[in-house]
Amino acid sequence: MSQAVKTASGQVTGDLYAEVRTYYATQMRRVDTLDIEGFADTFTEDGVVVHSNGVRAEGREEMVAGMHKALPRYRDVAVRHWFDHVLIEPVDGVDELKVSYYSMVTLLDREGRIEFEPTFLVEDVLVRREGRLLTRERVIHRDQPVEQG
């Protein structure tokens, strides 16, 4: 299965670009330090995450429950989420944004060995609520080789 390459339909200001990148840096530091409730707080109350395996978490409560289940996987490792190639498309001025980016996750064990997770394309819808960016929807696509043909 091949993945379509997206291009941005409009340009955003440098200030908005910096705000979005800072938002993601803050969000990922919360998840990387296993601040599950703080991470969930970066989503709208009714936010949705669709994982690459099709599992959906709807609302902060389901997100927190799912992440607590996954905690044993992250015992004795340092987790880092790396995002790049960020495309930001305004939908409604700066109050709704479609954002897509590439994601890579590394796990560092106590001996300094690094394990790489599969890479992903992530598509988010960010909304502004009371002056604050929040994720309303996240869809995570595991990368697949492009079919030649």
Results as ranks from 00 to 15, higher is better:
Q3P: 07
A4P: 10
T7K: 15
T7G: 05
G10H: 15
D15G: 13
L16G: 09
L16N: 05
V20E: 00
R21S: 06
Y24T: 04
Y24W: 10
A25F: 08
T26M: 14
T26K: 14
Q27R: 10
Q27K: 06
M28A: 08
M28P: 03
R29H: 14
R30K: 13
V31D: 01
I36E: 00
I36W: 03
F39E: 01
F39S: 00
T42A: 04
E45I: 05
G47P: 00
G47Q: 00
V48K: 10
V48T: 11
V50M: 10
V50Y: 03
N53G: 09
G54S: 05
V55H: 15
V55S: 08
E58D: 11
G59I: 00
R60K: 12
R60C: 02
M63C: 02
V64K: 05
A65V: 08
G66K: 14
G66A: 08
H68Y: 10
H68T: 03
P72F: 03
R75Q: 09
R75W: 06
D76Q: 08
V77M: 03
V77G: 03
V77P: 02
A78T: 10
A78Y: 14
R80N: 07
R80L: 06
R80C: 08
H81K: 06
W82F: 15
H85K: 11
H85R: 11
I88P: 00
I88W: 00
E89R: 10
V91N: 13
V94L: 11
E96M: 12
L97H: 02
S100Q: 04
Y101L: 13
S103T: 09
S103H: 12
M104S: 15
L107N: 11
L108D: 02
D109P: 03
D109Q: 01
D109G: 04
E111S: 09
R113S: 07
R113G: 05
I114E: 08
I114R: 11
E115H: 12
E115Y: 09
F116I: 09
E117K: 15
F120H: 11
L121E: 13
E123S: 14
V125K: 06
V125W: 01
L126T: 02
V127N: 03
V127W: 01
R128H: 07
R129I: 04
E130N: 14
G131I: 04
R132W: 06
L134E: 02
T135V: 15
I140G: 00
I140M: 10
H141V: 12
H141W: 14
D143H: 12
D143Q: 14
Q144R: 13
V146N: 11
V146R: 15
E147A: 13
Q148W: 13
